[in-house]
Design a binder for these strands. Sequence first.
DNA 1: CTTGACCTTGCCCCTGGGTCAAGGTTCGAC
DNA 2: GTCGAACCTTGACCCAGGGGCAAGGTCAAG
Lengths: 276, 276
Amino acid sequence: MLTIGQLADYAGVTIKAIRHYHERGLLTEPDRDSSGYRRYTAEHAVKLVKIRTLAHAGVPLARVKDLVDADPDTLTAAIAEVDHNLQDRIAQLRRTRDQLAQLSGGDRLFVSPEVADYLDDLRELGVSERQVHLERDGWILMQTASPADACVWITEKRELMSDPEFRALYLEHDAAYDWSPSDPRLPALADRTRNWFAGHHSPSETRPVHNATIARLAAQSQPGASSPAWDRLARLMEGSPSPGSPGRGHDDPGEGRIAASSRVRSWFCEAGSSEV
Amino acid sequence: MLTIGQLADYAGVTIKAIRHYHERGLLTEPDRDSSGYRRYTAEHAVKLVKIRTLAHAGVPLARVKDLVDADPDTLTAAIAEVDHNLQDRIAQLRRTRDQLAQLSGGDRLFVSPEVADYLDDLRELGVSERQVHLERDGWILMQTASPADACVWITEKRELMSDPEFRALYLEHDAAYDWSPSDPRLPALADRTRNWFAGHHSPSETRPVHNATIARLAAQSQPGASSPAWDRLARLMEGSPSPGSPGRGHDDPGEGRIAASSRVRSWFCEAGSSEV
DNA sequence: CTTGACCTTGCCCCTGGGTCAAGGTTCGAC
DNA sequence: GTCGAACCTTGACCCAGGGGCAAGGTCAAG
């Protein structure tokens, strides 16, 4: 006859766990000896090992209680199911391991693969870390708020980036962040930007629903995501166009200048807009 | 700006988990909007994914709290360690899977491999399931109470079982369980058994400490592990030897007949003794 | 006879959330 | 303009134990 400590060592569980199983009715309380100690038999040991094995496999104790007394067929079926769960959990842990490895690496854990590739392209292009960070955060917000729209939009933006002219404009906007607000290059940049946008309709702009999404997302600003030079740039683009590049007929009357500037800005910096 | 539900979906955690992280101080509480709803930024999303990855890897939240703000070197070192733990847990789960598979099978989960082999040998020999079960339970008790002694003893018993004469005696004892107590074969069996034991000293019997262990283990009886025929057999072996095989000089004066019978019985059925 | 290891019961707190309850908010549809 | 669904809020209890403490009884060996 075994004491509780011997039984616990045999089954590889703690004394506390055994008493817990008694309370739950999983393991019948054995007879006590003259001093009140529990005295266990081999039957208890066998049952406890079964309980331990199922409990270790993650089966809730309430279910273990039913299973240890169940007929062999029920048990076999249950074991098959539990084994499946176990396999799933192993696969899950492996996935967690992979994610863990990426944790100290790049941004792939936070954005979709497409966006991650795009961010890598930006870095390769020589875009500043600050700007890449701003883009990343913008895409996180977009993906979170509307994954479907974000998916469409990242495709468009990557196509846009294949245009050398747009790339140059993007890089200059990036550089302009640190310029003085009175820098003489700002009006010229604003002009060139407006001209470029005047000549390029993005596919998504033809869909009102998309514009609505953009407008809502543009409102999801982060504080501190701008600079004096960028603010000046925004004001310049809201103002009248330069004499050398007159307004084009395509201007939608329903689209105000502020919205246009916001939209432009969103092309360069996803979450950089501070308007509404 | 994200609501708690959007953030939860993005990170693949529950709303409850996020609030839990707030309570623990892992994730700073964001500002509330006019209605008291929490409104999250991309910074929160990034941090939450980090927290989720570590928490999923089994890192205690108290430690996660330190890690998410730690410097890259500390983080890298910690990740390596966590990854090790993860591998261990995967190995552990695999072991649990193996054990689960054996749960509906044989006895290998409850006794050492040597004993399991021995039990298989018994079955192959044609020993009854009842007897095998009795043996199994006896070995469980022995292994639990004194693994070292059980290891020595199982070796001896397997050697004993290689003797054809002993095997025959063992099988007849097994069969005798169901005999009538007045069966005429019983006295003859008792005689042959006594004669066999008189001619065979087992190595362990020369060691007093071992005898003490055996005596203590023999006391660990299970109720109902006997039968009228076996009880008669025990009495017969306690009585005077048959005329044809007189007592031998080896009889230890300090060892009474009852103890001798108990010892004999223990050779045939580990936990079958009901004395002491 | 003492000492240390082991046993008894009962209690409360910790983890990492899940679940339920009871109520306030927002948003789209009619 | 109002309705319902879906969302948010806090609070409290549950699971499957682990850990610790109290306050004491028991056992075996020196």
